[in-house]
Design a protein around this nucleic acid. Structure first.
Length: 862
RNA sequence: GCGGGAGUGGCGGAAUGGUAGACGCUCCGGACUUAGGAUCCGGUGGGGAUAUCCCCGUGGGGGUUCAAGUCCCCCCUCCCGCACCA
């Protein structure tokens, strides 16, 4: 008898799949399609457990759908531009291109070892000119439509990465990639007008409800940050100019006691110039910028100063003082606000600090407010007071009333504001897609001609030791001719944010070799992605950009859909417990002795076992997929990962757990192997399986119940952990059952053949290699990968007898085996005769009997 | 503060309003062994009676129901996201 040797089995089947091109697909409108996509990786060097989990989940989905008869697109590629390649170049002196390609090669080999069913013929890397040429083309077309533009702006700057960051890439004031504190800087850069799609991006989230995690939808909604209110104009006589503010509370207009401008506001600058306190304003602005970082820690106090200027209230015509204040953001609304201390907490704090008046204009029902005694602003609803003609209205009616009044006077209007900003895509980096624009002294900014695309990233650049992009110094790249006038031109040397590449790769996977950017037939057949799987860390950035790009490409005529990803699964992290030594910090598990002391440098300190955390080198809790594959095989790794937790939850790596998974596969292997030769030449038909003994019939019933449950868990609910549990449960039952079954009877052998066949098929999406092997061992000539998922016979899943639970007043008091399907009367007949139950019925009055067929009978007594 | 999610054995986790704890891990006992950290068999929520049982139990408190981990209300804790957004 053979023993289970994963490594040889896995190599064997991987090469057979490859040779036969099992996972190759093509557009075929006669077949139902299914597109499953996992977020493609950055080629950082090697695969980690997070990837393994992501891709295992995707592969199970792909294999299940294939077995269910779908034409399945399951591609893989590389998000290959990005900063780490440049960092590696600096550190090891390898060119980013070389580093990237060798990483790809290594990681691809790792993925192949895991037996993922990708159509590798569709593979591409985003650093291929054949990929990014189309990206450049899209950009030019967006530019021509006014959806891409260049502007000077205050940008987030990471000194360590030497580049600009998008708002989304700043996390708690730090660079999302390297953790360096982000500063601000005035800079020119290219922007994509994502704000033009703000409303649609928000609105279409409703289409995704139920298919995307609620959490992601909420995060995107917050990010887009729609708020409805009004723009109101305040005339400044000293300047002869109008200050426009945005407010969501026009109903509080009569409570305005001051106006506040961001220190960056152009009118603040103008006033400062006129009144001669420019330096004071500049100092203040600098201070505020520095303190932005403190704001996260909640340390910054409200601060500002009087601008020695007044504006005219649009309705009361009162003179309202102008302040500049640190809590007013230039980037939001109009950069200036009207301040109503009585009804806004921030305005309240500022007013108290500087002794500004507080005027109540909204009175709540309960307790009247008075400015003297208020300890905080009242932001709730109420009736309007001190508000001229609006006094007495509810504040909700007031919002409308005041806005309409202002509108009629031409001093305001209804306004919707979004928090979402345009997407800055310029990066001062080398290893990225060149932005295909040319600066000409006579023509200005001119896009490269489409026929000249791609603008190739020069690969012979010398990496600058200071970490700066070498492109601006590269004459043969920079010097060019103007596409318009043929005169001297200078190329843009910024490259795209790498999120541009990942914003449309899913579409290119449908036609990776097409000479057109996107082939109509392919994209309309395959898109949208039916199931997208990836980490929650992309909840905003990548997913919002990709949604935007989809809509933009639709409007350019390349796509015919609104949303790219029909269903989204955000899988949890792979975590593992950590060990900490008081002297050495994080240490490896093997540096902990049995009695829990630190072994590093014979230190002996008591080791603290930390809670499980995301695997990371610095915490010494990583598990290398290669080591696990080597030790247990890919099937075991896949099985454990799919079994240990539901997909969306964090998965705690357990050395014992993976042993358990491996033990299970060995049991499957040994069991099938034991009977393989006997069964190899045996076939069965449905009519062979009639007239079975009780125990054989029961086994067959368990089999069909298992198939049904696995189908539901794998295909409908995507709860792989419980599906696998059902397979394990079945194996346990099968082994018990075999002890009693007479295998001298041919009927039973034929049944066993059915059992093995279907068991193997059910397990195959999770553990494809061992299943192919066993399939072959029981005499099959086909490939499991090309088989259908087994059907179950509903009739066979029905129990013949069931355990009827007998409750008295809702408490379980007994159970009795009865034929399934019996009615209430029959059940009562049986149950009322049970001695245990009679005991409970003595001297009691039966008030009610509740009967749930095949489940329970509940006798209510008093 | 606002928003989202979650609290179930020693652990990971199961349970269309219908036997709470499937499946796996751990641990305990047994078998086979020169040996086992291999394999197989049995047990494993708590407490009590231990022949056959009983009581308690899904973060806490109320409620709806014949019946609640599941539905409703209040509270507590933890995780995640957002946070001077006017």
């Amino acid at each position: 008898m053979r023993t289970y040797e994963p490594s040889s089995i896995e190599r064997k089947w991987q090469s057979i799949w490859e040779k036969r091109g099992v996972f190759k697909v093509s557009t075929d409108p006669t077949k139902p399609k299914y597109y499953v996509l996992e977020m493609f990786p950055y080629p950082s060097g090697k695969i980690h457990m997070g990837h393994v989990r992501n891709y295992t989940l995707g592969d199970i989905v792909a294999r299940v759908k294939r077995m269910k008869g779908y034409n399945v697109l399951h591609p893989m590629g590389w998000d290959a531009f990005g900063l780490p390649a440049e960092n590696a170049a600096l550190k090891h002196g390898v060119h980013p291109a070389k580093w990237t390609h060798s990483n790809i090669e290594h990681m691809k080999a790792q993925l192949k070892k895991l037996g993922f069913s990708y159509d590798w013929e569709r593979e591409f890397a985003t650093c291929d000119p054949e990929y990014y040429r189309f990206e450049q083309r899209f950009f030019i077309e967006l530019y021509e439509r006014g959806l891409a533009y260049k502007k000077q702006s205050l940008v987030n700057w990471c000194e360590s990465c030497q580049t600009v960051l998008a708002n989304e890439q700043v996390e708690e004031g730090k660079c999302w990639r390297c953790g360096e504190v982000v500063t601000t800087k005035e800079m020119e850069g290219w922007f994509l007008r994502i704000t033009q799609y703000a409303e649609e991006l928000l609105e279409d989230l409703n289409k995704l409800a139920g298919f995307w995690p609620e959490k992601v939808l909420v995060m995107q909604r917050n990010w887009i940050g729609k708020s409805e209110g009004a723009e109101i104009e305040f005339f400044i006589p000293d300047l002869g100019k109008t200050l426009t503010v945005f407010t969501t509370r026009p109903d509080t207009l009569f409570g305005v006691t001051y106006l506040a401008l961001s220190p960056e506001h152009p009118l603040a600058v103008e006033i400062a110039h006129q009144k001669g306190f420019e330096n004071r304003l500049l100092d203040f602005r600098e201070k505020v910028r520095r303190e932005r970082k403190n704001i996260e820690e909640g340390l910054a106090e409200k601060e500002g100063f009087f601008l020695d200027t007044h504006a005219i209230h649009p309705l009361t015509k009162e003179a309202i003082p102008l302040y500049t204040a640190n809590f007013v953001l230039m980037e939001y609304g109009t950069g200036a606000i009207m301040c109503v201390p009585a009804h806004d907490q921030r305005d309240f704090e500022f007013a108290r600090k500087y002794g500004l008046p507080i005027k109540v204009v909204i009175q709540p029902q309960e307790e009247p407010l008075s400015p003297e005694t208020m300890e905080s602003a009242y932001e709730g609803p109420g009736l309007m007071v001190n508000s001229g003609e609006f006094t007495g209205l509810s504040n909700e009616d007031g919002k409308k009333g005041v806005t309409e009044k202002l509108s009629s006077l031409g001093l305001g209007r209804k306004k919707i504001t979004y928090r979402l900003r345009d997407w800055g895509v310029s990066r001062q980096r080398y290893w990225g897609c060149p932005i295909p624009m040319i600066y000409c002294e006579t023509c200005g900014v001119v896009p490269e001609k489409l026929e000249n695309l791609p603008v190739r990233l020069p690969l012979d650049a010398q990496i600058d030791p200071r970490g700066r992009s070498p492109l601006p110094e590269l004459r043969e790249f920079v010097d060019t001719t103007c596409p318009k006038c043929g005169g001297r031109g200078r190329r843009e040397t910024d490259t795209f944010d790498t999120f541009v590449e990942s914003s449309w790769y899913f579409a290119r996977f449908t036609c990776p070799h097409s000479p057109e950017p996107l082939n109509k037939e392919d994209v309309s057949y395959w898109l949208p992605v039916d199931q997208y799987i990836g980490g929650i860390e992309h909840a905003i950035l990548h997913l919002l950009y990709a949604r935007f790009f989809t809509k933009a490409l639709r409007d350019l005529g390349y796509l015919d859909l609104d949303e790219p990803f029909k269903r989204l699964l955000t899988q949890g992290m792979v975590i593992k417990e950590t060990y900490r030594c008081p002297r050495h910090g994080w240490i490896y598990p093997e540096e902990v002795s049995d009695d829990g002391s630190c072994l590093r440098d014979n230190c002996g300190e008591k080791v603290v076992i930390g809670k499980p955390e995301k695997m990371s080198k610095s915490k010494c809790n990583v598990v290398d997929p290669d080591v696990m594959i080597e030790k247990y095989g890919a099937d075991t790794v896949r099985l454990f990962i799919a079994f240990a937790a539901p997909p969306e939850k964090d998965l705690e790596w357990s050395d014992h757990g993976i042993e358990g998974a491996h033990r299970f596969l060995r049991r499957v292997y040994n069991l099938v192997e034991e009977y393989a030769d006997t069964l190899a030449n045996l076939e069965y038909r449905e009519e062979d399986l009639t007239g079975l003994s009780d125990s054989a019939r029961k086994l067959r019933r368990k089999l069909h119940q298992m198939i049904k449950k696995v189908h539901q868990d794998f295909e409908e609910r995507m709860h792989f952990n419980t599906g696998i549990a059902r397979i394990m449960e079945f194996l346990n039952y099968l082994q018990d059952s075999l002890k009693e079954m007479d295998l001298g009877e041919e009927k039973n052998l034929r049944l066993l053949k059915e059992v093995f066949e279907k068991l193997i098929l059910c397990l195959s999406p999770v553990c494809p290699h061992i299943c192919e092997e066993l399939w072959e061992r029981i005499g099959k000539k086909t490939l499991v990968a090309e088989e259908s998922f087994p059907d179950w016979i509903e009739e066979l899943t029905k129990e013949e007898v069931i355990n009827l639970v007998v409750q008295i007043n809702g408490k379980v008091r007994d159970q009795v085996e009865v034929p399934s399907g019996i009615g209430k009367e029959e059940a009562w007949e049986i149950v009322s005769g049970l001695p245990k139950i009679q005991k409970y019925l003595d001297n009691k009055t039966i008030k009610n009997v509740v009967f749930v067929q095949d489940r329970l009978i509940n006798i209510v007594v008093t």
